[in-house]
Design a protein around this nucleic acid. Sequence first.
DNA 1: CCGGACTCCTGTGCGC
DNA 2: TGCGCACAGGAGTCCG
Length: 279
Amino acid sequence: MPELPEIEHLRRTLLPWLIGARVESVDLRRTDVVRSRGRNLRRQLLEGARVTGLDRHGKNLAIIADDGRVVCVHLGMSGQLCVVGRGDPFLKADHVHCRWTLASRRGDRCLVFRDPRRFGGLWPFESVDDLRTHRWSKLGPDALHVTPAVLARQLGTSRRPIKAALLDQAMIAGVGNIYADEALFLAGIHPRRPASRLDDASRRRLVTSLRRVLRAAIRSGGSTIRSYVDGTGRNGSFVNQHFVYGRARSPCLRCGRPLQGQTIAQRTSVFCPGCQGSR
DNA sequence: CCGGACTCCTGTGCGC
DNA sequence: TGCGCACAGGAGTCCG
């Protein structure tokens, strides 16, 4: 399930292939993955344009073209976006919804959007301004750039569990189930602790832990749980560094007590009752 | 208005 | 070996 580190690593691996590339044609196999009401979807998906930028906010990736058009990509649960050679068998894989034929100095390639569960999608905009106004403005600050003061402002007086607040993209953008659990463990904070009851020290620890775990995960190419691959089709290796996610009933790597699994905010949550004791 | 619950979807992995 | 079923969850929507 791609979160901020996976999308940031994806962005970096796509950069050399996409920047400067011209979109020769767009082959859209499933129109309902494009979340737009307009007509001429191929044009909206940058046909004929040259890619000049790749931007990210939270789990959103924006492909920006020279004429201002933008396609915002969200991978949802199972989405994949990668560059392959023309004729690569991946182009004919199940659940490939869109293929862009690219021409660039590095050679002719195809960009492929694949998403078996279709929780992801493509959001076209006429300009970066439109993207920011209509979509990214609904998101909180990017989790990599959040400060304790900003976190305090975002959490406000909310009494919902801190875990639920971290998963809410309007609070902070980019954190999903894996990194919420990992950051709360590193910060020693119980996932059910009411968000507004974090004191200054806890908020500082949480911000530090978020940044540390997100940066470490980016360095490792992200966490591949099931289907995540980067822009060149490679898996991430951060799963090997998880302290809690996916480890319910296994011993805590810090204190040895069994980790506990619980459902919080409709999500599986794993934490250490010892290290994250106080609610 | 806030927050919890439900919904979409398919691959995986388990038990029998 | 194969079947059926529970489970995984990002985020939009609905409702109390």
